[in-house]
């Protein structure tokens, strides 16, 4: 049995000490500074075996897909396959950049992303402040479990719920109609589409988003509140001078993460509702990639769009992280 051999781990010195001395160690030499790679592999064989399925998964489905981005530089023909399709340089990118549909999708994505940033991003924070101000534990827990729930509901069902409540034969218009009021055209109305999708994402995710803010709020030093209250600060001043500065790192962190993801406004949501309002307003980058690639078979061009989106996302995170360092914040660390 390699009792001590295993327990000393990769760095032999520190682990070996506690509790070991009384145990008789018949054969294992006490000081054995470095193990060869083969010895470490033999020692960890079981753990390496545990890693194997996961590693294969990541190599095949993540790195395989990363590698598959190469078809952005190829003229992919289905029955020839990825390997044998001809290289075409940056042709797919030129085609893409000359496509007005692509620019329409990009424009919609940016507008929706900005709307989300302005209206959706602060929503969980506001809700968290409200929840945090509740002293009674029972009400707070009840409200929390209610507002977390929509996070677990699929987009298909969320869209179905919104249609049932706000659609032209839905509850809202039914009630308006019964009372002799004029009905409101919301679902399927291109003009209302962008506000609608932001409202949907607030309904679905604002509650879940409070978790991280609530944790940050719980960590704010009580004494700061006490001191400022004694100095005569009211609720607003405590919010402005104590609460917000205390949770600023968390806000900045989430903002950076959001920026990196800004070109992803939520694929499923738009995939489900694009046809109801038409591509003119309902197309975003991800749905553009789906329709031009998987539906219309322009795999190379669609992959080019996906690749540009991915690279831009990484660049955005990097820049936002740099800026936050400049402003004296921790940022994300990458």
């Amino acid at each position: 049995m390699t009792v001590t051999a295993a327990s000393t781990g990769g760095t032999p010195a520190p682990d070996a000490a506690p509790g070991d001395p009384p145990v008789p160690e018949p054969r294992a030499p006490k000081v054995k500074p470095k193990r060869t790679r083969a010895q470490r592999l033999r020692r960890d064989l079981f753990l390496v075996g545990l890693m194997l399925p996961g590693v294969i998964y990541f190599v095949v489905f993540h790195y395989g897909a990363l590698f598959g981005n190469l078809i952005a530089f190829k003229d992919y023909v289905t029955f020839i396959g990825v390997w044998d399709s001809a290289w075409v340089g940056i042709d797919n990118f030129t085609v893409l950049l000359g496509d007005p549909d692509f620019w329409n999708a990009a424009g919609n994505t940016v507008v929706i992303a900005l709307l989300q940033l302005v209206f959706f991003f602060p929503a969980p924070l506001a809700l968290a402040l409200l929840l945090n101000s509740l002293v009674g534990d029972k009400i707070r827990r009840f409200v929390q479990s209610v507002v977390y729930l929509p996070h677990f509901i699929s987009w298909v069902i969320v869209v179905a719920l919104f249609n049932q409540v706000l659609g032209d034969v839905g509850v809202l218009n039914g009630i308006l109609d019964d009372n002799g009021l004029s009905t409101i055209d919301i679902i399927g109305n291109p003009d209302a589409f962008k506000p609608l999708v932001v409202v949907q994402v607030i309904w679905k995710e604002a509650g879940w988003g409070t978790i991280i803010f609530l944790a940050a709020l719980a960590n704010v030093d009580e004494q700061l509140y006490e001191a400022s209250a004694i100095d005569g600060a009211g609720w607003w001043r405590r919010l402005w001078h104590v609460t917000l500065p205390a949770i600023r790192p968390v806000i900045v962190l989430l903002l950076i993460l959001r920026l990196g993801d800004i070109l992803t406004v939520g694929f499923e949501q738009f995939f489900l509702q694009r046809d109801a309002v038409g591509p003119e307003v309902g197309e975003v980058l991800d749905t553009f990639i789906y329709w031009s690639g998987i539906q219309d078979g322009h795999f190379g061009v669609a992959a080019a769009a996906g690749l540009m989106k991915g690279v831009l996302g990484v660049a955005l995170v990097y820049t936002a992280n740099k800026i936050s360092h400049r402003l004296g914040e921790q940022g994300v660390y990458r």
Binding site: L47, L66, F67, Y76, D286, G293
Partner: peptide, 25 residues
């Protein structure tokens, strides 16, 4: 054994999640 490279391999995918078209392929 192999912990560090594997961890890097995994965390890097955070940065570049698989895109739709290559995953499909």
């Amino acid at each position: 054994f192999g912990g560090k490279p594997v961890l890097l391999l995994v965390l890097f995918t955070f940065l570049f999640p698989p895109a739709m078209i290559p995953s499909f392929l």
